[in-house]
Amino acid sequence: MYNKIVAALFAFGSINMAHADDQSDLYLQLGHPVLETELSSASGLVADGNKLYAVGDDSPWLFTLNKQLNIKDKYVIKEYPLREDGKRIQKSVKPDYEAMAMVEYELEDWFLVLGSGSKAEVREWAYMISKDQSQSIESDLSALYAQLYAAGGFYGDQELNIEGLAIAKDKAFIFNRGNSGGNLIFILDKAELVAYVTNQIQQVSKIDTYKVTLPTVQGFEAGLSGGEFWTDAESLVYTASVEATGDAYNDGEILGSFIGLLPLEAFEEGTDIDLTQGAVPLLDYYGKPIITKVESVAITKSDDDDIKGVLVSDNDNGTSEFFKFRLFK
């Protein structure tokens, strides 16, 4: 069903090849990691012109970075008690910002930031922030997340773990990381999602749910972690990472990360989507997995068969890593 992906990974200035079973070739060129110590636990990333905007899952700020991946500014999304390091929110109250995208609201571009939903009340909040950062709107996601919980067939102690958000045409794609209930993609009407997070409606009218299967590493299935819409290719660019953990609250040992493509037409073929053969691992020069937890992807330039962008990773230690990449056919 899906294209074979051949990845040329330019790690540490050298080329390494990874292969997946398919009919066409796709190449990934990966740059050196850029360590950022001020931005902890990066989890959401948006590109706009020559700037990047990022959030961390335990950081109270929306960060602005330049094209050299240097932080130039930061905006307080909401005040929270911080740890002794002065940059990380105390875990018991962290809102767990995990997904971010740019949406249009009242004819202007706004950043939409979603909490993961992995802890009731504390992580069930959304923030709409105007691009000039002069306005913000807070909204309670508990009712929407209850709808997602039901639509995803969750039960018992299983928890949502919303990790990614991609906007494509008139749809919003919400990615659930499968470490406590399965890798799922929820599709909502974009206008309804915006209406919900701007407190105009109390529920959305329809949610379509798709179950995604990803590769395993040491017995642990990769979990969806981010997504972006590649307009020219009519596809979602997704990221996934592998942690040795079985719940949505605690971190586990990082085992590696993947990137791949998901054509929009795949959603017309059924509710089960198998990405085990199309996911490209991030490898070093020696062909070994780069031990990094990729959390989000942003496209900075694109055409029909070539995109450039940035991947961002959460190191689970108060730092983050950025990787410039090129994905081309």
Rank of each mutant, 00 (worst) to 15 (best):
M1D: 02
K4H: 10
I5T: 11
A7G: 15
A7H: 14
L9P: 11
A11G: 12
S14L: 15
I15A: 15
D25Q: 15
E36I: 14
L39V: 13
L39F: 10
A42L: 12
A47Y: 08
G49P: 01
K51A: 14
A54S: 13
S59H: 04
S59R: 04
S59A: 14
K72V: 06
D73G: 01
Y75E: 09
E79C: 02
Y80V: 00
G86F: 01
V93D: 02
A101H: 06
A101K: 08
E104W: 04
E104V: 12
Y105P: 05
F111D: 10
L112Y: 02
V113M: 03
L114E: 01
G115T: 06
S116K: 08
G117M: 05
E121C: 07
V122T: 13
V122G: 01
R123G: 02
R123W: 04
E124Y: 07
E124L: 09
K131D: 12
D132C: 02
Q133N: 08
S134T: 08
S134P: 00
I137A: 13
E138P: 06
L141T: 09
L148V: 02
Q158Y: 03
E163N: 08
I167N: 03
I167M: 11
A168M: 06
I174K: 03
I174T: 03
F175M: 12
N179I: 02
I185H: 09
L188W: 04
K190C: 13
E192H: 07
Y196P: 04
Q203V: 05
Q203M: 00
K206P: 00
D208K: 03
L214V: 11
L214N: 07
T216I: 02
E221N: 12
E221Q: 15
G223E: 06
G226S: 09
E228T: 14
T231D: 03
E234Y: 08
Y238A: 00
T239M: 09
A240E: 00
A240N: 01
S241G: 14
A244M: 05
G246Y: 05
D247L: 05
Y249K: 15
G252A: 07
E253F: 12
L262G: 02
P263V: 13
A266K: 09
A266Y: 05
F267D: 08
G270V: 05
L275H: 01
G278Y: 02
A279K: 00
A279P: 00
D284N: 15
D284I: 12
Y285T: 15
Y286G: 15
K288A: 14
P289L: 02
I290S: 00
T292L: 02
E295S: 15
S296Y: 08
I299R: 09
I299F: 01
D305L: 11
I307S: 03
K308S: 14
K308Q: 14
G309I: 06
V310S: 04
L311P: 12
S313E: 13
D314T: 12
N315H: 03
N317K: 01
T319K: 06
K324H: 11
